[in-house]
Design a protein around this nucleic acid. Structure first.
Length: 459
RNA sequence: GGCCCCAUAGUCCAGUGGUUAGGAUGCGGGCCUUUCAAGCCUGAGGCACGGGUUCAAUUCCCGUUGGGGCUACCA
């Protein structure tokens, strides 16, 4: 049998079928034969419901008996199950009859076999496990209403789906022995288990949807401009590495499929660093970093569709970008992606390139326009000079900018940075001259003509 | 309380019975320059503690401490 799900099955071994995650496809899959809604007329359940291991159990409230047991074993510091030799679980038959006659609702509980030795299995990640069944509770299989619990459902679903490899979080490691017992009770083949280390929140607790909200949701990453491959790349690195002195960190999906192996997955939990509410570090900085690496370095042709989708979603897409302006579009994306971190940057900062929409960053305006009042006159003057340019290319734009700066007795840098902000709204970005050429003569001229209001407003 | 798992910089990962303990990210400084969440260079920062085993432990063993998980008529 292949040791992990991505291994290629070479021989007659069946192709691995994986159960990834922990939610059964159906919580009622197993209930058909075993569950009946108890009624006053229901006959006592035979002890043989499940390999002579399932028993009816009563309690005035679902957990009353267990609460007592917990208290007992805590105060006596006994192993949890020693007080439970079966006596309080196995109710005498006549008592069962009496309770059923009285219509007392019951659950069906699995009686753990404690005389057959330890439950053993080899976890692909955590290694050999051997659990003393005395540590295991007699757990409930069916609720009072006959519906199955998770423990039974996963096992039944995975058997039904012929799952060969179960890959899930380490929080299920302790439940695995119970499930193995169920596989055996049902006379089914026990699958191979691989438990993965957990991803913890910055505070150290288990990361959860309930407590941590959107950061745990993949759709959040999609909506906030992550490339699918970049997310997968980052996640793969949480707990796994190629090893053998190989320090590569950027992996394509194909490389991951080729090189990933469960055997090289570590056993210690990872902390997922993020700062809720911080627009810059809303998720782990390393995840952001890998996403930016992808955006900057992936083949342009593979990035383009993602940018297009983002622009379309914001109403910034122009069919000309795929037609007569295709070349310009490609060059522009290539120019601006160098400093971008997520796909959102293409619609936020990028809007200034693809449309008439410019978002002026207040800090940028204050820094590059607000500190030099003379720009209120210089920038419009520059606008007219640029408007008169027959060829709006890098060299002529630069020459014009420098000339206008001299004429207004301004430092070149002041005009250049002011120009960048007046035209793109940003304090950072590509070379101001390249930026102008990319945005185009008409828009640059128009934005410069409108800039005095910004200069005065900021000053 | 019981059982299980884990332990290398802030974080994510390599690594070795003898190494200047490596990379990434983040942070500091410098360079470049018209800007920097860009690029280049550079700096600080780590083997949790205590016992063993050994000529020699970050590495192997035990314990301690610390962290996490499970222990539901949740999944």
């Amino acid at each position: 049998m292949p040791r992990h799900p991505r291994a290629t099955s070479t021989s007659a071994a069946p192709a691995p079928r994986c159960s990834v995650g922990s939610t059964p496809a159906s919580t009622t899959a197993c209930s058909s034969s075993a569950s009946r809604t108890p009624t006053a007329s229901a006959r006592p359940r035979p002890a043989s419901t499940l390999s002579s291991r399932a028993w009816p159990g009563w309690g005035s409230t679902p957990t009353s008996r267990w609460s007592t047991s917990r208290t007992t074993c805590r105060t006596t510091s006994l192993p949890p199950r020693t007080w439970w030799p079966g006596a309080s679980c196995v109710i005498p038959l006549d008592e069962q009859e009496r309770r059923h006659a009285a219509g007392a609702p019951s659950v069906v509980r699995y009686r753990v076999p404690r005389e057959d030795g330890n439950v053993e299995f080899a976890d692909v990640v955590y290694g050999e496990q051997s659990i003393d069944p005395h540590e295991l509770d007699d757990f409930v299989l069916l609720r009072t209403d006959g519906s199955p619990l998770y423990m039974l459902s996963v096992v039944c679903d995975d058997i039904a789906m012929r799952v060969t490899h179960v890959v899930r979080g380490q929080d299920h490691l302790s439940n695995t022995p119970k499930q193995i017992l169920l596989y055996q009770a049902l006379d089914a083949t026990v699958p191979t288990f691989a438990h993965l280390p957990l991803i913890m929140a910055p505070g150290g607790e288990k990361l959860s949807k309930r407590k941590h909200g959107d950061v745990v949701s993949v759709t959040t990453y999609r909506d906030r401009g992550f490339l699918p491959d970049a997310l997968v790349n980052y996640l793969a690195l949480l707990g796994w590495s190629p090893g053998d002195g190989d320090e590569q960190e950027v992996f394509t999906r194909a490389e991951l499929i080729e090189r990933f192996s469960l055997e090289r997955v570590g056993r210690s939990n990872a902390k997922f660093m993020f700062t809720a509410g911080d627009p810059r570090n809303w998720t782990d900085p390393k995840a952001l970093s890998i996403n930016s690496t992808w955006i900057r370095n992936m083949p342009l042709d593979e990035l383009l569709p993602h940018v297009e989708a983002a622009l379309r979603a914001e109403g910034l897409w122009d069919s000309a970008f795929a037609g007569e302006r295709a070349e310009w579009y490609r060059a522009t994306v290539e120019l601006i992606r160098e400093r971008f971190w997520t796909l959102r940057d293409f619609v936020e900062q990028g809007a200034a390139y693809f449309s008439d929409r410019v978002t002026f960053e207040p800090a940028a305006v204050a820094k590059n326009l607000g500190r030099e009042p003379k720009l209120a006159a210089a920038l419009p003057a520059l606008a007219e000079r640029l408007a008169g340019l027959a060829s709006f290319d890098l060299e002529s734009v630069e020459a014009t900018v420098r000339a206008v700066a001299d004429e207004h007795e301004l430092k070149h840098g002041a005009v250049i940075t002011g120009l960048r902000t007046a035209v793109s709204g940003q304090a950072v970005g590509p070379s101001a001259f390249e930026l102008c050429v990319a945005i185009g003569q008409e828009r640059v001229v128009r934005r410069l003509r409108e800039s005095p209001a910004l200069v005065r407003g900021a000053g």
